[in-house]
Computed example of a mutant assay.
Amino acid sequence: MKRSTLAAAALPAAVVLTLGLSSCAANEQTGAGSTATGSDGASSAAAELTGTLNGAGSSAQQAAQQAWIAGITGSSPDLQVNYDPQGSGAGRTQFLSGAVQFAGSDAYLKDDELTQAQTRCEGGNAIDIPDYVSPIAIAYNLEGVDDLKLSPETIAAIFDGKITTWNDPAIAADNAGVSLPATAINPVHRADESGTTANFTDYLSKASNGAWTYEPGQEWPASGGEAAQGTSGVVAAIGATAGSIGYADESQAKDLGHVQVKVGDAYVGPTAEAAAKALDEATPASGRPAGDIALDINRTPTATDAYPVILVSYLIGCTSYADAADAANVKGYFTYVTSEEGQQAAADAAGSAPLSESLRTQITTSLESIKTS
């Protein structure tokens, strides 16, 4: 068992991250919000990026945001980008109210949010841009058990409170030859509205053959268990109590044990490579506005080396901004983050799966729609 001493691992609930974007070269095109793309897909902003750009949302993206800071801070001293990882739901609420220029979210905008965004976006649309693909670790704290395998049905029963001890026959059936203690199970879930919860409950709903009876959603639906605020809160709660199990972005749960989930006849752990395999089977969500790249994940993949408990996290922005600087800054920031350079920085620091070249090509086209109203 990878047991942590989590005093240092518990991050503040709200951290403001500051980063800079690269300035334009003198020979680039000019015009508010225009960009030029280098050979690696990274953006050189056409208009000089200045002022302050504020975003809020997904706590799962926190480690990636820190990597992007390390890669580009200081390149454009006249621009400050602040990102507050207070959770996907809170980030979308702030974006839709106009409090921030962009949001980070582990769930794409719902239909009613897209309608609401037309006012916030000056008559334009809000668009979801994939920027961070990561496995959600089903993380556990169980002394003496370093290798734990679970089927989707068993995972669903654990989080629904129907399996209450670690030596339950259903757990033993997935772990032949493993000595399982009679320790009580403490399932930990998010207390706040969370895109990670939306993805985890979507997995439980679609992969458990009816064992999970709740609708997928951003609020935890089942009674019982322990609730914790944010990704860091869940990780800290699991580490603090023996017998705990919960779900969190893999990048922030590295000191805990990770469940291998059953896919077909195989068991697969949460790695970037296995997450990328699952992403290959994602399909475009239907009924989305032009430029939106929302994806639906196949939670029962055909590839038995794919890890289906993943999240595709998004940057959410407007196609139209009243302020030309906002349009230029959002476009420049989104372009850097989704570039080959930005994606590699996040992969190195957070273990995320870089976006495919074909997906980045779609993103480049979508970002051309960002303009001044």
Rank of each mutant, 00 (worst) to 15 (best):
A14S: 15
A349K: 15
T241Y: 06
A253V: 01
V133A: 10
K254V: 10
S205H: 14
V268F: 03
G217T: 03
G55F: 10
A36T: 13
A324T: 08
P187I: 06
N186Q: 13
G210L: 04
I363W: 09
G55S: 13
T335N: 11
T35L: 09
E341K: 14
A227D: 04
A272P: 06
L79R: 08
Q86F: 05
S75H: 09
A182T: 04
A347W: 09
T361S: 14
T37S: 08
N167H: 02
A276S: 14
I297G: 02
V309P: 06
Q229G: 05
A198K: 11
S43A: 13
Q218V: 08
G264I: 02
V235S: 05
S23A: 10
S44G: 10
F102Q: 08
E340M: 12
T271D: 03
A303V: 01
F102C: 00
A26V: 03
L359T: 14
F159N: 03
L204Y: 04
G38Y: 07
A350W: 11
G161M: 01
P85D: 10
D146S: 15
V235L: 02
A237G: 04
A282N: 09
A227G: 14
T365L: 10
G91L: 09
E281W: 02
T154W: 02
S352N: 15
A32N: 10
G291N: 06
D280M: 04
T165L: 03
V259W: 02
K277W: 06
S44V: 10
A176M: 01
F95Y: 05
A63R: 15
Y247S: 12
T154E: 00
L256N: 00
S105G: 05
R288I: 00
I136H: 06
S76Q: 13
L150F: 07
A237H: 07
Q66C: 02
A276P: 01
C24H: 08
G217A: 04
T231E: 15
G317L: 11
W68K: 09
G144E: 04
G233D: 04
T52H: 13
L148T: 00
A42W: 05
G57I: 01
S39H: 11
I238C: 05
Q61H: 13
T365D: 15
G51C: 06
K2I: 09
P221W: 03
G71R: 15
D265I: 00
G269V: 05
G38S: 10
E48C: 12
Y132R: 10
S44C: 13
V309T: 11
V133L: 15
S356P: 00
V81A: 12
N199I: 01
S352R: 12
G57N: 11
T302L: 07
L109A: 01
Q29C: 11
D112S: 12
T115Q: 09
D128V: 07
D305Q: 02
A211G: 06
A7R: 12
D296E: 15
Y203D: 00
V312W: 08
G124T: 00
A345I: 05
E357R: 12
T196P: 01
A9W: 10
G269T: 10
A7I: 13
Q344K: 15
G31E: 01
V234M: 06
S205Y: 11
Q218M: 12
S369L: 14
E143Q: 15
T271Q: 07
T52P: 05
S34N: 11
